[in-house]
Design a protein around this nucleic acid. Structure first.
Length: 823
RNA sequence: GCGAGGGUGGCGGAACUGGUAGACGCGCCAGACUUAGGAUCUGGUGGGAUAACCUUAGGGGUUCAACUCCCCUCCCUCGCACCA
């Protein structure tokens, strides 16, 4: 054994061994319990960052631990290889996106290998190759045939900088999620996936995911945004059309004093009465100029203008003035609302501003109805209906049902559920993505590409300039095709799919990456899916995780998969921060993983990152902390080096029962218990590491007191155990020392099981409290009863001084731990 | 405003069902070895005149016993935010 710990040499050697032995290749084995462990695959940007290191290290600990417990672990890795940066790089570096991506993958792959991550590289998936995206195209066509994929003209979020359409989910506070440019609204023909048809399924599924963090589920539920209420049609005075509104408060219909409609409402042209036209149009124009920014970000003043027209209440028959209001959104509900200022804060503010009536129709439980003249805010709570004709006196919750019944009876509307969730626009006017397999024929219209002609391959001979139309639209060889139906000239769809499509089913592809006759091997899919543990950043709480759940449900309905949810357990790890801020180029606080690995070794990097914080919390990077991690490994190495020659010649099974041996063995078995508890169900890797540090500390303590030849078997057991327990965290150094001990590889080694009888000493330290305050400690045989402990405590001079001359009122004994003497 | 999660030494963080608060690591202090030490080892390290005693954001409560349970207040982070 070398005297000095040299991580670089050791790590390279073991990584080579693992690679050559295909050490982490997973195979279906129906006799073994599977575990599918997955970390979110990266975009191949070229270099890994600390966030990756953290994400993948956490996963690797779980993978290596579970393998040792006997689970058949699949731990794959791949590349989310489509997407804009490749195109941007192509423009600035004059390379082809494919080449750029490939060299990035090669580089990142070697970086991941240098971290010692135990991936099954045989299952590697690259989403940008036709063998991958051809199945996505097939799914798309099948979705089209079922009406799940459809084409529609709709206002889209357009990023002028990225020159592409963005999904609602990709617009953050009115700006592009990538480049933060203000997004503009444009009308375009787009391909959509009907995620709204799955809104209820996705929402219900949230309640069947106990292994997901509550906050992720909450975010998803919020995003889906279900609200139950009803639609009511109001007659418009002097017009044939009805005004349809959506409300969740049918119990307040007798409090309607005006109507508010969105400036984009299609009926507006007819509704606005001639004398009001100029003012109304000026207002509409003003709102429109404000754009998305003003409407969606600034919680601006509520403004509106009277249309000069009235609706008729189907309840009272009264005339209700119709206003155009800036806060009413066309995209939600019907784009028109009934306004009940007494019981809706927004309506209240609007009414106050324009001097409109306020009519109270709900009386709060146990207090008088609010007075419209003195109210300073709307009462939005429940209560008893008042001033509401035949409903007066009814409880508001019951009233909601009864009013809906009345509306239905009179054919003025129906109950209705609305969702905030919108259909997923997947068209992207970009080159580097999966082509949407559709053809436009002048004669036959939209046609899907016949399945036997898939894949529609992305052409490689393109010029990428970043100007004007997408490179695909200018590529005649690609665009010009024949209609699959009539054989006449036709043009291909030139939009590509949102890259979130590829990441919505890659985890399924890992189960049979080489399969060619279809997307998945049925048996492999049945064996491995669903993913038992998924690990990734919280930033994907909505986008990726919602889309992946959606596509899984679609694939289920298309008959490809047989489960409802793809990820049983989800762990969202925190960010890596430095000096209190997220690592970023602009802040100049980036720590390069490669540099850390080069200087301290992968084992040190892994150990630090696991030790510094529990996985779900943010991790503050500390160079000093890294040194501490390295110091621990150095200490481990030195300890092993000191005893290696003696340890080589003894057998663990010969461990003696002398006091020194027993002390060593107790520490060993107690540590097994601690680490097993923390690593298994709790994922508290930081406390695992500290338990291992404590174990090594106590071995050094034993060393200080002198370890004789008689203790060598116990010491061997201890060191071997320490190596196994530490192996998931620091796989290289542990393998190396283990080999020096003359043992075979740790890969298939069993996770140790502690021996109950070795956890206990025959005596225990019992804390003595007097009136709840700590006063001392006595050493007692295990299982001592109240009177015995009290006797011992009384014998202790310090403790006795607190009790002397006073009556013991009560004794509280916590077996083997504590005695509280109450005076 | 609504929803979720937090607030523990100089710092990162422990304390699983209420039972020795501050494990482990960093930093700091002292010492040893040494030509030197940013190497290594040993000891110390919540506050306090190291004596009483006080300490888990602050205040109250339940209990023999509270970081942990209950009530009130303050602060921080994240998500949603005119969704009718």
């Amino acid at each position: 054994m070398e005297e000095r710990y040299d991580p670089e040499r050791i790590e390279q050697e073991w990584q080579k061994t693992w690679e050559e032995g295909r050490a982490f290749a997973a195979e279906e084995d129906s006799t073994r319990k599977k575990f599918y462990l997955l970390e979110m695959f990266p975009y191949p940007s070229g270099r890994i960052h600390m966030g990756h290191v953290r994400n993948y290290t956490i996963g690797d600990v779980v993978a290596r631990y579970l393998r040792m417990t006997g689970r058949n672990v699949m731990h794959p890795m791949g590349w989310d290889a489509f997407g804009m940066p490749a195109e941007n790089a192509a423009i600035s570096h004059r390379t082809h996106p494919r080449d750029w991506v490939e060299s990035n993958i090669a580089n990142m792959k070697s970086q991941l290998k240098r971290l010692g991550l135990s991936y099954d590289w045989d299952r590697e998936v690259n989403t940008s190759v036709p063998q991958y995206y051809r199945w996505e195209q097939k799914f798309f066509i099948e979705m089209y045939e079922r009406g799940i994929a459809y084409r529609a003209k709709s206002p889209v979020n357009w990023c002028p900088r990225c020159k592409t359409v963005l999904a609602n989910e990709q617009v953050i506070e009115g700006r592009c999620w990538r480049c933060s440019t203000d997004v503009v609204i444009d009308e375009k023909e787009q391909w959509f996936l009907k995620i709204t048809a799955y809104a209820e399924d996705l929402l219900k599924g949230c309640d069947r995911l106990p292994g997901w963090p509550e906050r992720v589920l909450t975010m998803q539920k919020n995003w889906i945004g279900k609200s139950e209420g009803c639609e009511i049609m109001f007659k418009i005075e002097g017009m044939d059309e009805d005004l349809r509104i959506f409300t969740t408060r049918p119990d307040t219909v007798y409090g309607i004093t005006f109507m508010s409609i969105a400036p984009e409402h299609p009926l507006l042209g007819k509704i606005i009465a001639a004398p009001y036209r100029a003012a109304a149009e000026a207002f509409i124009d003003k709102v429109r100029r404000g754009g998305t920014k003003a409407r969606e970000i600034e919680i601006g003043e509520k403004e509106g203008v009277f249309t000069g027209r009235y609706a008729i209440s189907p309840f009272t028959g009264g005339r209700i003035p119709i206003y155009i209001a800036n806060f009413v959104l066309m995209e939600y509900g019907t784009g028109a609302i009934m306004a009940v200022p007494a019981h809706d804060q927004r309506d209240f503010e609007f009414a106050k501003k324009y001097g409109l009536d306020i009519r109270v129709v709900i009386q709060p439980e146990g207090s008088a109805p609010p007075d419209p003249k003195t109210m300073d805010q709307a009462y939005e709570g429940p209560g008893k209906m008042v001033n509401s004709a035949e409903f007066t006196g009814t409880d508001s919750e019951m009233g909601k049902k009864l009013v809906i019944e009345k509306v239905v009876r009179e054919h003025r509307g129906d109950s209705k559920v609305n969702y905030k969730l919108r259909d997923w626009g997947i068209s992207r006017q970009r080159y580097w993505g999966a082509p949407i397999p559709m053809v436009y024929c002048e004669r036959c219209g939209i046609q899907s590409v016949p399945l036997d002609q898939l894949p529609v391959e992305l052409p490689m001979d393109v010029s990428i300039t970043g100007e004007g139309e997408s490179p695909l639209a200018r590529n005649k060889g690609f665009v010009d095709t024949v209609c699959p139906k009539c054989g006449g000239p036709a043009k291909r769809e030139t939009d590509t799919m949102d890259t979130f499509m590829e990441s919505s089913w890659y985890f399924e592809k890992y189960t049979s990456p080489g399969k060619t006759g279809g997307p998945f091997d049925k048996d492999a899919l049945a064996y491995w899916m669903p993913v038992d543990q998924y690990i990734g950043g919280i930033e994907h709480a909505i986008l990726h995780l919602l889309y992946a759940r959606f596509i899984t449900k679609v694939l289920r309905d298309l008959g490809y998969v047989m489960y409802d949810e793809p990820f049983t357990n989800l762990l969202t790890q925190g960010m890596v921060i430095k000096d209190g801020a997220k690592m970023s180029k602009s802040l100049g606080n980036i720590v390069d993983p490669e540099h850390i690995i080069g200087r301290y070794g992968a084992d040190t990097a892994r150990l630090f990152i696991l030790f510094a914080a529990p996985p779900e919390k943010d991790l503050e990077w500390s160079d000093k902390g890294v040194e501490g991690a390295r110091r621990f490994l150095d200490r481990l190495w030195r300890f092993a080096y000191k005893y290696i020659d003696k340890l080589k010649t003894v057998r663990t099974s010969d461990a003696g029962d002398d006091e020194k041996s027993m002390a060593i063995r107790r520490v060993t078995h107690r540590t097994i218990r601690r680490v097993t508890d923390d690593i298994g169900d709790r994922f508290h890797f930081n406390t695992c590491v500290s338990a291992l540090m404590e174990m090594l500390n106590s071995l050094y303590e034993a060393d200080e007191k002198g370890i004789g030849d008689g203790q060598m078997p116990a010491l061997r057991e201890s060191l071997e155990t320490l190596l196994v327990l530490l192996n998931p965290f620091a796989p290289h150094i542990t393998e190396q020392i283990n080999r020096e001990l003359g043992n075979g590889p740790m890969l298939r080694q069993k996770w140790p099981v502690y021996k109950e009888e070795l956890l206990h000493d025959n005596t225990v330290a019992i804390v003595i409290q007097v009136n709840g305050k700590l006063r001392g400690q006595v050493r007692m045989p295990e299982g001592s009863d109240e009177s015995a402990v009290l006797a011992a405590a009384s014998g202790d001079e310090r403790i006795a001084s607190y009790i002397r001359g006073r009556q013991v009122k009560k004794l509280v004994l916590v077996k083997n731990r504590l005695l509280n003497i109450v005076l």
